[in-house]
Structures are given as C-alpha cells and as structure tokens.
C-alpha cells in the first residue's frame, strides 16, 4: 500500500447517508485510513469542512438541497481554490453541458451513479499520486 494513499484526506459530499457510507467503504478499501475521511450532506457543509481541514480528494454529488454540487464548485471557483483538491463528481447527472460547466469550474473526474467501486478505487489512487507529485 502506498504512503500517498495513507496520507490522503477525503471529503464525501452527498445528501444520501447510504451513498456516503458506500463511498466511504470503497475509499477505505483503497487503503485510506477511516479517520482521514469526512462527510458532508450538502455543499454548504462541504465548504465548512474545507475551511476546517485540508482535503486532498472530494467526492461530490450534484443534486443536493441547501447548496448543490454545481453551486459548491462555483463558490470554490469564486474563492480561487477550486483546484486545491482533486474533485470527483459522483452523480446521476448526464447532461453534457452541465457536466462541462462543472469540469470547467475545476472538477477533474466523474463517476455516474450507480458507480462501480473499482472505478472509484482507481480514481482515488490516481488522485493520490497526482497530489504527491
């Protein structure tokens, strides 16, 4: 197991507790320590989590109450810190125009729900390597 993975801090942003736990399970299986994973139920909570602690990888849903994933990306971009984390969209969203806009704001990868845990694992390894480089 690489040190990069063990030193990776992850934030999972989804209004569904089920999805947060499913992503957490997949992330832990890659070697990220459970205590390095935080959860937020919407974009507003995610902003607060980022303010409190450094995060390397964010798994971000789009369709959420309070502040959705697109609004979260807009807020990060406005603050000039959208590229401070490796952001992976995990959503049912399929609209090409909206996904392109979110990618332009700084999202690096996308997993469509229902996602395959193996794909999530590959992404977090890629993100950890990139962050360590």
């Amino acid at each position: 197991m690489s040190a990069d993975i063990q030193n990776t801090n992850v934030l999972i942003v989804d209004d569904s507790m089920i999805v947060r736990k499913a992503i957490r399970k997949a992330v832990v299986s890659t070697g990220v320590p459970d205590h390095s994973i935080r959860e937020a139920a919407n974009g507003q909570e995610a902003i607060e989590a980022l303010d409190e602690q450094g995060v390397d990888v964010v798994f971000l849903d789009i369709n959420m109450p309070v502040m959705n994933g697109e609004e979260f990306m807009e807020e990060l971009a406005k603050q000039g810190r959208a590229n401070d984390q490796y952001i992976v969209i995990v959503s049912t969203e399929v609209n090409a125009q909206r996904l392109l806009r979110i990618a332009t704001l700084g999202a690096r990868a996308r997993l469509q729900k229902p996602f395959e845990p193996e794909r999530l694992s590959a992404l977090i390894q890629e993100a950890a390597k990139e962050r360590a480089a």
Partner: peptide
C-alpha cells in the same frame, strides 16, 4: 436524451 436536453431530477 438527457445528455443533450437539460432534464434533471428533484430531491
């Protein structure tokens, strides 16, 4: 055809 048309789900 959601890739082209902006249909989206609610909560």
């Amino acid at each position: 055809g959601g890739e082209e048309h902006p249909y989206h789900p609610g909560i």
